[in-house]
Design a protein around this nucleic acid. Sequence first.
DNA 1: AAATCAAAGTCAATATGTTGGACTTTCGGA
DNA 2: TCCGAAAGTCCAACATATTGACTTTGATTT
Lengths: 261, 261
Amino acid sequence: MAADSERSDKSQVVERTCAILREMGRYGQRGARLIDLTERTGLSRPTVHRILTTLGAESFVQRTNDRRYRLSPVMYELGLAAPSPVGDPEKLRPVIQALANQCGDTVYLAMRTGDFAHYLLRCEGAYPIRTHVVAANQTLHLVSGHSGRALLASMPEDEAEDIITRASRDRHLFGEATPDGLREEIEKVRQKGFGWARDVTFVGVAGLTVPVPNPRGAAYLAITISSIPQRLTPDRAQALVKDMRAAAAEVTRIVSASTAS
Amino acid sequence: MAADSERSDKSQVVERTCAILREMGRYGQRGARLIDLTERTGLSRPTVHRILTTLGAESFVQRTNDRRYRLSPVMYELGLAAPSPVGDPEKLRPVIQALANQCGDTVYLAMRTGDFAHYLLRCEGAYPIRTHVVAANQTLHLVSGHSGRALLASMPEDEAEDIITRASRDRHLFGEATPDGLREEIEKVRQKGFGWARDVTFVGVAGLTVPVPNPRGAAYLAITISSIPQRLTPDRAQALVKDMRAAAAEVTRIVSASTAS
DNA sequence: AAATCAAAGTCAATATGTTGGACTTTCGGA
DNA sequence: TCCGAAAGTCCAACATATTGACTTTGATTT
């Protein structure tokens, strides 16, 4: 190891363990290969292997049958003992439901987790044609959904690029889109502050998405309206984005309030 | 440290880190004091402190303002990247809803997490007087709810005793009950295989609870029917318990199927 | 079916990071 | 203001982690 300039009463092994766990979190339920983790953490293979073996013995990690490592249900349970970054999502439902009532379409609130967007809430509007492509509590890769586009646009460019690059190996994650197409879309989201796309999650469904501003860094929440493309004309989208941003600000307010304890 | 008889390519620090994290999980969002963790893990204070400091720097752990340590939202997010021990709880809803339809009352499915019961599902029956004391996604201390009684009864006695002892410091967790009263109740649950109690979560509300058998060890799920005491007479309870056990068996079946991948 | 290659897994000599007893500081209660 | 309990710090001793080099596994190709 190179000289560590940082003074510390910190444990090197713990740091490395955290790095590995964090990295595994990115790979979700599919799991990461040993070599993925060594490359991404910069640690030597035996080191990663030993830590993984130990985490496995503690059942924090499981080895899948195709020699991948993923976080185990024990980690899920541990997570439940920790406060959610947004507090109780139900506190946010009124805001999202109000938006759904206003626009008549289906509105989602999604939270970023590693390379994925976890859909916390889905609220229905009154418009009779409903798009139910994603359910509450579902998790979609950031490159696979509308909310993911807003979230990717909000994070540092190299981080987003890293996620897209890595996802490119699994072409099916992109559906009708392509990695390069997505890069362009995200660039547009960065410029305009909202995303509009169709046929992303499902052919014949369009989505409008905005990131929820986060005073402490990159957004980890996004609000998305899902509808049929005919209902999301540029004019209407313009108006909706205004409402969405208002709702987003409200969400920020509520989350900040419940987090400051 | 005593001699470690076990050969290993395991990392001591990782083992210790896991022990600390697991222990912190037990304490939930209130957090644990340094001394709690040193006592319960048997590690020296400087060691625990150093590991906690590192976990804090990695933001896996946060220090509350009253000098307690608790798992951070980062852990919550990590947990979302791991598979839930029960797979998607929505797959279990039909079973619980069917039971609710059958009995007419409110039925819960709860999962154990550390010292707590996390309520996954709440299904409504048709009976007009409804008891809505607990919401879905809420978390209650094991000593504070009906499901917790079933879960405590299912675990090794010393583990249950440890949880009750520790909880005894916070008398308010017990509501109208007392630690000793609870111990008796739980002994009854062990003998009869179900729990009946009133005024636990709320005065004027009664609950009937059974553990969901887990082929791989102690139950971590419980089914609970909540109603007014008049509706849970001994005779009716007897009949309901039969239905609940059938539902529990069905839950076991579904969970086992979705876990075997 | 054999060959090939990439990734996983193992080992052990070395040096590095970890350990915990003893000391100091902080905080909450009286 | 004082007091005790818990938190936090330091450093010499040494147990533990580290990684280069080696072996094994399993998937893919010929």
